[in-house]
Each structure stands twice: as C-alpha cells, then as structure tokens.
Design a binder for these strands. Structure first.
Length: 270
DNA sequence: TTGAGCGTCGTTAATTGATC
DNA sequence: GATCAATTAACGACGCTCAA
C-alpha cells in the first residue's frame, strides 16, 4: 500500500494506467479527472476511484491554482488482512459503481477524514503508526463499499457478492492479463463448481470472466495505440492476443472503429 | 454440483486495401 | 513492390447457461 499527499499544477498529462487500485481524495482547488473516455470535474472534497488497467489522469483545472490531493494506491491482495475484506473490493470491480463521489456525500466526507488521518500518521511516524494507518485505510474501503451498496440499492440491484474465490480469479487475471488465461484455471482458483463461479463472478464484476479479460485488454490496446509507435500487430501480441483478425474484430466491437482508424483519429486530435 | 448443449470464441488461410 | 493492416469464411474448441 502506498499513500502520498501531492501538490500538482499540471494541466497537461498523459493518460496512465497500472494494475493497482487507486483512490484520489481532492483537498484543494478544482481538478479535471479523466477515466477511460469520460471526463469529470472535481471540487475540493471529491473522491475518485480508479480501477486496475483503466487509463486515467487527474490534473489541475487551472494551472495557476495547483491541486492538493491524497493518493492511495494498493493491490487487491491487501484485503486478505481485513475480516470479510474481499467484499470491500466490489466498487473496484463493478462497472455499475460511479467512480466519482461528490464532496456533499457523507461517504466522501468520511473518506476524506480517514485519508487525512492516514497521511498524518505517516508524516508523524509515532510508534505503531502503520497499524493506525491501516485502520484508516480500512475505514476508507468500508465507506466506499457502503456508498456502492447504496448505489446498487437505489438502482434496484441485489447486494453484490465478492468472495475470496472471485478475488483470487480477478488477481490471476490482472497478473496474467497479457498471457493466455484459461478459464478452467480461474475455476480451479475459485475452488467450487463452475456454475457457482460464473454466477459469483458476474455478480461481482458485472460481466463474464472472458468479457472482463477483453475489456481490460482493450484498455491496454487503446493506451498503446495512443502513446506508442508500436505496430498494430505488436500491440495485439502485447495485449495477449495471438491472432490479429481476432484482435481487430474485438477492437471494432469495443470501439466501433478499427485499431488503425482509432490511432489516426487520436493523432489528428493532438 | 454436474452434465448437456447452444452459442461464442479463437485460429488459420486467403484475399484485398493502404501506406511507404 | 514490400510490408502492414483489415476483412471474410470455415471450423474446432471452449465458455457459459440451464435443468435436474
């Protein structure tokens, strides 16, 4: 787990991605957040969550007014240390949860307080500060989870079910995203029957395992098309596809245009 | 939880088009 | 002309759902 308080005046910045889960708590001034293709305007007190592999950035809306924000980065496996912690990952794996918690929400306020307390512990480094910081970190996750439950409830959805087996499967996917992933391995990691696995996975993530894998791979592909000079063939292999026609077919399904056209459009827009 | 079965996935090969 | 990218068709493998 990594926690830092940053002050940034950048107004231009490349989209970036990583395999970690990320929470940003905006403390001062206005920011522009971008997640995938959606842009959000953030005010002081707002909280944003970024899912693994989703390209994103967070920048000062006005370079003359630098943003101050707390960044919390962690890997999914950290929740093993929390009783019932697997459930707390639901907001990061479900597409149903809005990544932007406005400052007015009581959950955002509690998350902001917990993040600041966690940061203060780190700064002061009093005896036992790591334990105290972890306690605040747990508090952040619990509030995010409760917020997502409230969202699910208002949308008329049933309570999400994230259990240890689903998290193990998701972790395996994230770790081996660009390699061949056999769903049978995921079922073995889950440890119960395949029907149960498919049902729980869909409940937690919102899509089937294969679709989840493709969604992440497409995000990697879009990022590489935008930010590198790699050929489309190389990008396909880099993203875990061993068949170019299949990569093209998927890309077109995902974006409605071919990879080459996507790259051309991005370059024209720059 | 299991197994059957349908539908989709993923690969290969051939061909065409675009770009340098 | 060479290389890279896109498209299409065919087919076996596998993912996923449903009923028992």
């Amino acid at each position: 787990m990594k926690l830092e308080c940053r002050i940034d005046a950048d107004a231009e910045h490349e989209l970036h991605r990583h395999d970690l889960l990320e929470i940003s708590v905006l403390l001062e001034n206005e920011a522009k957040f971008k997640l995938l293709d959606r842009e959000y305007r953030g005010a002081a007190g707002d909280v944003f969550l970024f899912r693994p592999y989703e390209p994103h950035y967070n920048l000062a809306a006005d370079p003359r007014r630098p943003i101050r924000w707390i960044l919390v980065l962690f890997s999914a496996s950290v929740v093993r240390l929390i009783p019932g912690g697997y459930r707390l990952l639901y907001p990061f794996y479900s597409q149903e949860v809005c990544p932007h918690l406005p400052a007015a929400s009581p959950y955002a306020a509690r998350i902001r307080e917990a993040a600041m307390a966690a940061y203060e512990e780190q700064e002061e480094q009093l005896p036992g500060w790591e334990s105290k910081q972890f306690m605040h970190f747990t508090d952040i996750l619990v509030n995010l989870y409760r917020y997502s439950l409230e969202q699910a409830e208002s949308a008329g959805e049933s309570e999400p079910a994230v259990d240890a087996g689903v998290v193990a499967a998701v972790e395996h996917i994230l770790k081996h995203l660009t390699e061949d992933i056999d769903v049978r391995e995921l079922i073995a990691l889950y440890g119960k029957g395949k029907t149960c696995f498919y049902s729980r996975f869909r409940q937690a993530v919102g899509v089937t395992p294969n679709r989840f894998i493709h969604r992440l791979r497409m995000q990697v592909a879009m990022h590489l098309l935008k930010t590198t000079e790699l050929s489309i063939t190389d990008i396909a292999f880099e993203c875990g596809y061993s068949s170019i026609p299949y990569f093209n077919k998927h890309f077109k399904q995902y974006r409605d245009i071919s990879p080459r056209e996507y790259r051309n459009r991005v370059r024209r827009a720059m």
